[in-house]
Amino acid sequence: MAESDPIISSYDVFLTDSEINRYVLQYLDRPIDKGYDERHGQQPAAFRMKPETGLVEVDVPINTQFNYDVDKGEQYGEALRRSRAAREGGGYGMAGGFSSVGAGASARVKMEGSSGDVEMGGTNRKEYLGLQTLGGRIKIPEEGDPVYMLAAFRGKNLHLSPVSAVVQLHPQLHHIDALEEMSKGRGSKGKKDGDEERSAETEARAIDVKIKAAEDGEAVTAGNLELLKQMQDEKWKTYDWVDAETEESWHTYESYMIHQHPEDLPQLHAAINSEDYLDTMSAPRIDPARPEMTGWAMKQNRKRQKEGKESPEDDAQG
């Protein structure tokens, strides 16, 4: 009788260097068949990290030729350009400690006119919102969390690479923050220039974030304020984004995801046998013939049976 679940293939498994940082970015609002890459016309323009506080931001181009509100694009782009955040190069929202010291994402883009695509130029040239910022935070792994691995096949060899973290990226509303900041600046036009400048400098302030504890209901603020300060103080580290289909990307893939000389690697040996492994990862085993015998007792009984001996219970019954 043929096996109902036959083994159709087997692979030799190799573990790659675990000291290399590998991050999996999840775009929660993006269809899987429309990646952020050059092939779809939306290769990310920038990638930033704050390693100590775990913040991540990615700037991706906006398709300004399809469903693009030119008036809103101009409004938001100008707000980002004029804001202190755009000049100082930080980040709004959580990335900037919820203050107005941050980075904007504006760009000169083409507008769709009645007679084709026209680009604003000369004295009328303005900034339009041409980039969307996606942001998230690296979750520090805790004991008991699953360990994710990236798999790469080469022939009959399976190379497994540990994932440092999975980062879920959400759209950031930095352009709205910049517009609100600019609106506040307009409201203070009646002040003297010196007063307005001092007011703008002191506008960035810590926000009193309160989180209700589940047990006693008391507000906890000190730790959160300290975290916000760390987020704001830490400088961004910027990286070049390499498209997945480029030769450089494939070279990196070959170097960090696959062992080039697997025959030179030491072989791992299991510290326990197959039966002990099953006992460790499974629920307690029960012998249907003797429900009272579980786990270790059942294993000892089967061992005696294999050795051709009768169990003590059989002797007592005889």
Rank of each mutant, 00 (worst) to 15 (best):
L265C: 14
S106L: 06
K189W: 08
G113P: 01
E275A: 15
S188T: 09
G96F: 03
D33W: 12
T16V: 15
A45T: 13
K303L: 15
G73V: 04
L131E: 02
P146V: 00
G116P: 00
F98M: 15
P291D: 08
I211S: 11
D37W: 01
M94Y: 09
D233Q: 13
N124P: 09
R30T: 11
G217V: 01
D195I: 04
G130E: 01
G89N: 02
L227D: 00
K306N: 13
I8C: 11
E78L: 09
E310A: 10
S114M: 09
A213M: 04
D279C: 13
L80T: 03
R87V: 07
I62R: 02
Y239T: 00
D279H: 09
G121R: 13
M293C: 11
M298N: 07
G116V: 02
D29A: 07
R304H: 08
L160F: 05
R82G: 11
W296M: 12
R48N: 02
E254T: 03
H40S: 05
V220A: 07
Q132V: 00
G54V: 04
D279T: 03
S274L: 08
H170G: 02
I32H: 10
G41C: 06
G104P: 11
Y76V: 06
A165P: 01
M149Y: 12
A271P: 05
G90L: 11
Y27K: 01
H251C: 11
I272C: 12
A2H: 14
K309Y: 06
T123R: 09
S4G: 13
W296N: 14
K72Q: 14
V60T: 02
